[in-house]
């Protein structure tokens, strides 16, 4: 394995990443750089490799070849999900996955930045500091009323927020959000956009999204993926006028 020195300053650095499933190349020599503090949106048609890219970054899928570095030093292709999560990379799935049998409070409690060791978890203590942090997060995602409810009883949009709240409370450096507004009402979508912009003030966020109105409302740099590789990158106006992008995606 070659040990090229990744770009300095880049928070997330993917170079030449290839992943194939039984002959089908989900990622084909993908290279992508996300700078610290950036808000990045990634768009692309179905099968372009958006979710696989997130799988690679979060350790769910191992790349067949290529390099994946976090903060220039941590080789994500060699770590497992829990280790990557503990580096400060959080992920929100396409479908909301909260722990439905736990209460809203307990969901946040598990996500709280805290020791993850099995012994420490077994012998964990309750402190007012932790309670306060959970209460603050509840207020920020607007679920203070629902604190004692089982998460399974929340509405679809509330589950999405709870999940974002869980990423928030862990103090992640990098958040990967997979279609955060899928299935939301227009009003919920607007609120989510505000929440993301608010979150982006003090962390790096990568958003995968189909909803072009939502992407536009975020006003961030856009990367277009196609057939497992980057097709175009730039402002939303730049990519919307890009000839190839129109052919494969926007102008269908």
């Amino acid at each position: 394995m070659k040990t090229a020195t990744p770009l300095t300053g880049a928070l997330l650095y993917l170079n030449g990443v290839t992943v194939s499933f039984e002959g089908f190349k989900a990622l084909n020599d993908l290279s992508l750089v996300v700078e610290e503090g950036e808000l990045r949106t990634i768009i692309g048609p179905n099968g372009a490799g958006k979710t696989t890219m997130m799988d690679v970054v979060t350790g769910k899928t191992r790349p067949d070849s290529g390099e994946v570095f976090f903060r220039g030093t941590a080789d994500l292709s060699r770590l497992d999900e829990a280790e990557i999560a503990n580096l400060g990379i959080g992920r929100k799935f396409q479908r909301p996955t909260v722990f439905e049998n736990l209460t809203v409070f307990e969901n946040l409690e598990l996500a709280l930045a805290d020791s993850r060791g099995t012994w420490r978890t077994l012998l964990a203590h309750s402190t007012s500091d932790r309670r306060d942090r959970i209460a603050a997060a509840l207020a920020r995602i607007g679920l203070s009323e629902q604190t004692g409810q089982p998460a399974g009883a929340l509405s679809h949009g509330q589950k999405q927020w709870l999940e974002i709240g869980m990423l928030l409370i862990h103090d992640r450096t990098l958040l990967l959000l997979d279609e955060p507004v899928a299935g939301m009402t227009d009003r919920e979508t607007e609120e989510t956009a505000e929440l993301i912009l608010d979150l982006a003030k003090d962390r790096t966020i990568v958003v995968v999204e189909h909803d072009m109105a939502f992407v536009r409302s975020l006003g961030a740099r856009v990367t277009v993926l196609h057939e497992g590789a980057v097709l175009a990158e730039g402002s939303i106006d730049h990519v919307q006028n890009h000839q190839r992008v129109i052919e494969v995606y926007l102008g269908r």
């Binding site: 999900e81 049998n101 996500a111």
Partner: peptide, 18 residues
């Protein structure tokens, strides 16, 4: 609570860092 959580959504618990 971690156990209950992983019973229902194991990989989600991994992504939380446990």
């Amino acid at each position: 609570r971690v156990l209950l959580a992983l019973r229902d959504a194991e990989s989600r618990v991994r992504f939380l860092g446990y």
